[in-house]
Design a protein around this nucleic acid. Structure first.
Length: 580
DNA sequence: GATTTCACGTA
DNA sequence: CGTACGTGAAATCC
């Protein structure tokens, strides 16, 4: 193996460049159309500076580049593009290879431990990454490519092979039949690139974390559950105290475990309240009927903080550098939203004061306004709904047109996107169908396709698999309700999914344009972006967020049709709680 | 010990 | 009979 050092690779901007990083400070690099090379990771900086588009198997490589001090500008993430194209949750190398080559996913080989009853079968040359069945060898898929420089180079070359196949598959979906939508997906290659960029953002979010003021965080927790207990006895005493604040509203000697929903139900029955469940929204309605309701609700809130967002949570997820870290995925679940662990996506509003910019910095945050109905206008191309997006509050023109109140119009539009068929919105729904046939037709088509078990594609090109479970052994009623549920799922997935893709395109632009200003994306929350920036450039970054939004909207609008207007509410703040 | 149910936070 | 997600504790299953 020859390590090439200090050589001018003459990479050109945008050149597709396969990369696999070897865990010894060397990396395999292959610029499309040239022989593969082993270079020291230090050399990767020069290649990055040339502006190549890195092609890698997964965001693990992004993490390694970040570790090496490189913040890649352009990338192609095979796993992310695979999820987009195929709509599968599995995007490990074995699946990526099989999908790219049209192989049966059921026959993907896995590493089998050799025991007394099985013998290792000789399947040919282990240095060939591809087995006789055409699949990637499982040991290669599991990381055996890192065993030698030659293998690592081969691994980087394979990444480029798959990238070419993904490229062709993306081009093909623009012309494939698309029963789930009256319109073909728009610009799937651009979506592939922004989905890849989202993986990069995830790798950075994992590395950089969310700035979190531990002192403030602990003070907030203390406000709910008291000071940090120092001993187990201490903690037990404190728990009893919290419980007593509720139980003292009961007759003497009566004891229930407040942590058990069943026992809470019994407790309520004891004081003459009969409920089917003890969920907070139901208890809200019983406020004032008995003195125990109020303290019980307060107890629930404190218990939530104590168990999920308490001292152990802070200890586990906030580093010594004052950053809250979790694992991020760029596209997960049904519709391809970003997900995060460590409670980053469901932190109670009360905790938000603890999310605070580092000194010398501020947070610039922006959330997209009425993103889903605006996305509906864009993906359906409905000209009248598009016109409504020119209003800051697009429910107002819709209400005018339907001759109903704003509230009714809003419920009807949301109901149409989520599949609600009852309630106040139901009547206005007929008005929507009359006045916005393009948008409602789009949703209806998705609903019907999903009910029929046909896969859908979002406007960005993401495949939404509906050919999953089959309703065998169900009663006729169950079959109907399952079909209706599938319909709602499909309706929602084409909107939520497209909104997620739109968001990621926006975020990717903000990352690209903001890096020169020292802007760092620290949180992505479905329709909200939080960026930490040096105080001096706050206004500039705030304006940038708006510019990037306009550009995303422009890129999304089909040729020869009016662009949909997207709006964001932007603020420059010290801590997250100051928003709005 | 693993899986399901309930509950609840966010969008 | 609105959707999605992650988390934690109790209840239940095996």
């Amino acid at each position: 193996m020859t390590v090439v050092e200090g050589q001018h690779l003459n990479a050109t901007p945008g050149a597709l460049t396969g990369v696999a990083i070897w865990p010894d400070a060397n990396a395999a690099v292959v610029i499309a159309g040239r022989p593969a090379l082993i270079v020291p990771t230090s050399e990767l900086k020069a290649i990055e500076a040339a502006g190549v588009r890195w092609v890698w198997w997964s965001k693990d490589t992004a993490a390694e580049l970040i570790q090496a001090g490189i913040r890649p500008k352009r990338c192609w993430d095979l796993a992310a593009v695979q999820r987009l194209l195929a709509g599968l949750s599995q995007a490990d190398p074995g699946h990526v290879w099989a999908v790219a080559h049209g192989l049966d996913l059921e026959s993907i080989p896995t590493l089998q431990p050799v025991d007394l009853f099985t013998h290792a079968v000789d399947t040919g040359d282990p240095d060939n990454p591809i087995g006789p069945d055409g699949h990637l060898r499982p040991e290669w898929a599991e990381g055996a490519w890192a065993d030698s420089g030659d293998r690592t180079m081969r691994w980087a070359e394979l990444a480029l092979v798959i990238q070419q196949r993904q490229e062709r598959a993306l081009a093909a979906i623009e012309t494939e039949p698309h029963p789930g939508a009256p319109r073909a997906p728009g610009r799937p290659r651009e979506t592939a690139i922004s989905e890849s960029a989202a993986e990069l953002i995830c790798a950075e979010l994992e590395h950089d974390g969310l700035p979190f003021d531990r002192m403030i965080g602990e003070r907030i927790v203390a406000g709910f559950v008291g000071k940090r207990p120092l001993t187990a006895d201490d903690e037990r005493a404190r728990l009893d105290e919290l419980d007593r604040d509720v139980l003292k509203h009961l007759p003497h000697g009566v004891d229930f475990d407040l942590r058990s929903p069943d026992q809470v139900k019994s407790l309520l029955r004891r004081v003459g309240i009969e409920v089917p469940d003890t969920r907070a929204w139901r208890l809200e309605g019983l406020r004032g009927t008995h003195s125990i309701i109020e303290p019980l609700l307060r107890w629930r809130r404190a218990e939530r903080i104590r168990t999920t967002f308490g001292y152990p949570w802070i200890d586990e997820h906030v580093g010594p550098d004052g950053r809250l870290r979790g694992h991020w995925t760029g596209s997960d679940g049904a519709a391809g939203r970003m997900t995060a662990t460590a409670g980053l996506h469901n932190m109670p509003a009360e905790m938000r004061p603890a999310v605070a910019a580092a000194s010398g910095h501020v947070l610039v945050r922006a959330d997209l306004g009425q993103i889903e109905p605006r996305v509906l206008a864009a993906v359906s191309g409905d000209p009248d709904l598009t016109r409504a997006t020119y209003a800051d509050d697009m429910y107002l023109p819709v209400a005018d047109r339907l001759r109903v109140s704003r509230e009714i119009a809003k419920v009807a539009v949301l109901g149409a996107m989520y599949g609600q068929t009852t309630g106040k919105g139901a009547e206005a729904l007929r008005g929507l169908e009359r006045e916005y046939p393009g948008a409602m037709g789009y949703l209806q088509t998705a609903d019907e396709a999903a009910q029929g078990g046909h896969d859908l594609r979002t406007y960005g090109g993401r495949r939404i698999r509906m050919s999953g479970e089959i309703d065998n052994g169900m009663s006729a009623g169950d079959v109907r309700s399952r079909a209706a549920a599938r319909g709602r799922y499909g309706r929602n997935a084409v909107i939520q999914g497209a909104a997620a893709e739109f968001f990621k395109t926006w975020a990717a632009l903000v990352r690209a344009r903001g890096s020169a200003l020292g802007a760092q994306i620290v949180l992505c929350l479905h329709d909200e972006l939080v960026v930490q920036v040096p105080t001096a450039v706050a206004d500039e970054v705030a304006a940038l967020l708006g510019d990037c939004l306009d550009e995303t909207a422009f890129r999304w609008s089909p040729p020869n049709s009016a662009p949909v207007r997207f709006v964001a509410d932007t603020s420059i703040i010290e801590r997250w709680s100051e928003a709005k």
